[in-house]
């Protein structure tokens, strides 16, 4: 599904290299997790994959289903099936959540040559999916993320994911700022989307989230590289011993 080879990325504005040769393959239908200490480049990887400005790819490639995505605009990547659940979902005053969702869904359908959803069809689907995430009508009406609590913002991210039905979902620290109950709710939302045709890349500091979203593969990232790859037991090792042991081992 997602194949990243030797990816080198620096900041556009300053001479600073952040990713220093990332190699990563996420197979179709699998859940991969990336863990790593602060500053290891995890969030940068998610931003570069989704097309945020300010980064310069100096070497390497990233392909989604065999198609190079690094030259695409963010909206083209989204239409190709990539989705990033933001660590810090953005507040957009003046744009209604429902309008935003419908515009996004229909823009992607249009880009893929599919028929746009009518207002009634859309409403039916969104209400159903919102209900399972405990998102009420008021949250759908309000401006995007404005006045939402931390938990509501993350649930709103998952709702967008559920509506857009991407093939490749990247979750950037979706557990940050969530209490246990909110994390469970979000994890349930993600698990409901697990499917043989859909892949996930879950970025997190903590093993906790991975109790709820069980990964197939766990990677440890440090200093802009994947330094170790293993099964779910690797996450437990981090939980018990911290990153220091692993980093010392691979150094």
């Amino acid at each position: 599904m997602l194949e990243i080879k030797n990816l080198h990325v620096g900041l556009e504005e300053e001479d600073k290299q952040i990713l220093k040769g990332v190699n990563l393959t996420v197979e179709t239908g699998k859940v991969h997790a990336i863990m790593g200490p602060n500053g290891s480049g995890k969030s940068t990887l998610s931003y570069v994959l989704s097309g945020k400005d300010g980064y310069e790819v100096t070497d390497g490639s990233a392909e989604l289903e065999g198609v190079d995505i690094l030259d695409m605009e963010p909206e083209e990547r989204a239409a190709a099936g990539l989705f990033l659940a933001f660590q810090y979902p953005v507040e957009i005053p003046g744009v209604g959540n429902m309008t935003f969702l419908r515009t996004a869904v229909n823009a992607q359908r249009k880009a893929r040559g599919e028929e746009e959803l009518s207002a009634a069809e859309f409403l039916k689907v969104v209400r159903e999916k919102a209900k399972s995430l405990k998102i009420d009508a008021d949250m759908l009406k309000r401006p995007v993320n404005v006045g939402f609590s931390g938990g509501e913002k993350k649930r709103n991210e998952i709702l967008q994911m559920a509506m857009l039905e991407p093939k490749m979902c990247i979750l950037d620290e979706t557990d940050s700022g969530l209490d246990v109950d909110a994390m469970k709710l979000v994890a349930e939302g993600v698990n409901a989307l697990r499917d043989a045709g859909r892949s996930f890349l879950v970025i997190t500091h903590y093993q906790r989230l991975l109790d709820h979203i069980k990964p197939d593969v766990v990677h440890i990232m440090a200093d802009g590289k994947i330094v170790k790859t293993g099964g779910p037991e690797l996450a437990l090792e981090v939980e018990n011993n911290g990153y220091a042991d692993i980093l010392a081992e691979v150094a």
């Binding site: 945020k52 909206e75 953005v90 957009i92 744009v95 992607q108 880009a111």
Partner: peptide, 27 residues
């Protein structure tokens, strides 16, 4: 940041810019 958020959801750049412009004037 808002523009990237909208485009990352598949909304084309111009349309996203219009949404934000309209939101601004809407106030």
């Amino acid at each position: 940041t808002a523009l990237f958020y909208l485009t990352s959801r598949g909304i084309p750049h111009k349309e996203a810019q219009d949404m934000l412009t309209l939101a601004f004037l809407g106030e």
